[in-house]
Design a protein around this nucleic acid. Structure first.
Lengths: 197, 197, 197, 197
DNA sequence: CGATAATCGAGACGGTACGTCGAGTCTTTAG
DNA sequence: CTAAAGACTCGACGTACCGTCTCGATTATCG
């Protein structure tokens, strides 16, 4: 059952996993999801197609795995003792990470979500939820410290934070830069957090 | 130069345009963007593929045009004399419109935006801008009526409105329903509009 | 350089060659050259079109190869010790072979000869020359045996033999039967061979 | 019923027939039957396709008509009082006519004969029969003059004459020149005609 | 050690959709 | 009603990609 048991034949070369994910990411960032071909990924990694299909069931599988792998290593979680500082830190760091190839890769998947339930689940669990959870924890710590009143609409603020980031990333052509983060923070998130205080 | 000049040969049959767009929308809603084939659209409309390619350069072109055509006819613009009422009206109506096939179609295009500049331009001009403009005009009327203080961060509010709608539509699997609209309105948009008043 | 070298990837499946040639011959005999489609050949052989195009450059190429392959295995060369007997034998056997699908296939190619130099070369080398050579060798043996006088116009007789066969086969609707062979032999070929003896 | 009646509308422009046949012949001679497209013929004649289809039912129809029209005007029938002289004259003249575009056009049709009964009938009636009839009449005159013995195998000689011409024209790449005509005449036709005299 | 078995790169395989092009028909404006 | 122009449906073209399979060669474990 376990493909990683010592088994008889030649063992899988674990270094191919990384090479293939790397190749997939490169091709994805260069040409987008639709124009990504398995042949191109195989060629980029100097691998055979069978080597890919031995590890992933399909193009979609490969791309999902490649993205989530990367995302999960790159969500910052600052904890400085100040909600404002933590939020600013998180937004800046994550925004600049999203600006790179992973953001484009994630965007490439959006169109497939409605027709690929497994992809949708993976996308949400590995990409959306972690960011929300970080923001939520960050605000919760503020609540516990009394920085924020208990009546702040946390759920809505958390959702808006993600929405604002991804809207810029994927839909408009406006930059995800420091000025944007600052404006979002001072004109929307902080006022909502401190409403009534 | 003008392809619609009275010209010599047989003129384009305008009814084919509509039939093809209709067929494209049906196929799109049924199987999604990736699985949409030109053959399927042609068959659905009882047209030859050449007839499609005479009007649109590619599958993408066809889908863009089909969507924007529909969107532009369906953006509500309430004007009741109350910002709150207008916003609620707009959000409800547009959210329920986006829940239909056009929303899915728009989503299907997102992944192509970074690699198709023309598509990106069309998407923004025909899909994003109109919604933003409606919201902006609606708030501007409130400003002129004195309902809203002049220091309200209109740009940010407008952006967040679109972001919140499309985030739910395309990325999460949470519903774009009345409850969501109400929460967005009372917990975020209205407080931001009335901040400091 | 050599496509049959042991090489790296999966080798060409030689049995597909035969299956495709078989399918091509069947389709050709059934519907003729013009109506022969690559899709039909592929379907008949349960092959993908790419598998055909990997082996032959075009429909023409496939048909040429299919025909010459068959012709070269089916040119009889009798050697009984009598020119008359050998000629009768050859004409009967080859005429009845030409009456089958190969004859129709060869005919199908005639119209393309002036515009396809490679086809013309293949047609002549694989189809015309072998018949002429057989007849010539057959007559040469008669010359060496002294059955025929050395002044017989061999070139002309050889040419007329081929001409007579193919004229009936391809141009008139008269049968290539035993009576025709007998008439050609006794009224033309034998008198010319024995002229002056 | 009669399309040439004075009728109501604009009368058919008879000069278009000639222009279209001319165009068809040119295209045919240039690219062959298969590559001849109706659009090309129409363009060459600066005509609309409908104008072609108003006069001929199909591509085949057009080509048949174009060829037979030309052939029937160009079969020479010498009558000098000498079979040898007449045959030499006919063979020379007709061979040089066949060397032109009409020969190529006729060749283009050969591949279609087995699958197009109407074409086959037209081809034989308009192209093959007239040549045979000329040769037969020419020999008959010799018979009546006593130049030839009554036992000469006329049918066979007539058939061989056509076969020899068309074999060279369509199948081999050897020239249909004076030397060929002379050799055919002196080494085959005349000996057969005079056999036993 | 030799046999066995799963891996690797390479690329042929069946299949499906692509975007183009040709045949023959239809529909417009101009005469 | 005919002419030229050109849009129309239909279907084959030759190409590209998917996911599978098959080859020789390699690399491990097992007996």
């Amino acid at each position: 059952m376990d493909p990683n048991r010592p088994g008889r034949g030649r063992p899988r070369d674990a270094s191919r996993d990384a090479a293939l994910r790397q190749a997939a990411m490169e091709v994805l960032a260069e040409v987008g999801y639709r124009a990504l071909t398995m042949d191109a990924v195989a060629a980029q990694a100097r691998a055979g197609k069978a080597t890919i299909y031995r590890r992933w069931d399909s193009k979609l599988d490969l791309v999902i795995d490649t993205c989530t792998q990367l995302v999960q290593r790159n969500i910052p979680e600052p904890d400085s003792g100040s909600v404002e500082h933590d939020l600013r830190e998180f937004l800046s760091a994550f925004a600049s990470f999203l600006t790179g190839p992973v953001g484009k890769a994630a965007q490439a998947l959006v169109g497939e979500l409605p027709h690929e339930p497994e992809l949708a689940a993976a996308f949400r669990t590995s990409f959306l939820l972690p960011q929300r959870d970080v923001v939520r924890r960050l605000i919760d710590r503020g609540l516990r410290r009394g920085e924020i009143g208990p009546e702040a609409p946390v759920d809505t603020i958390v959702e808006l934070t993600g929405a604002a980031l991804l809207y810029r990333l994927m839909l408009t052509d406006e930059p995800l830069d420091a000025e944007f983060v600052e404006r979002l923070l001072t004109q929307a998130l902080l006022p909502l957090l401190h409403r009534g205080t």
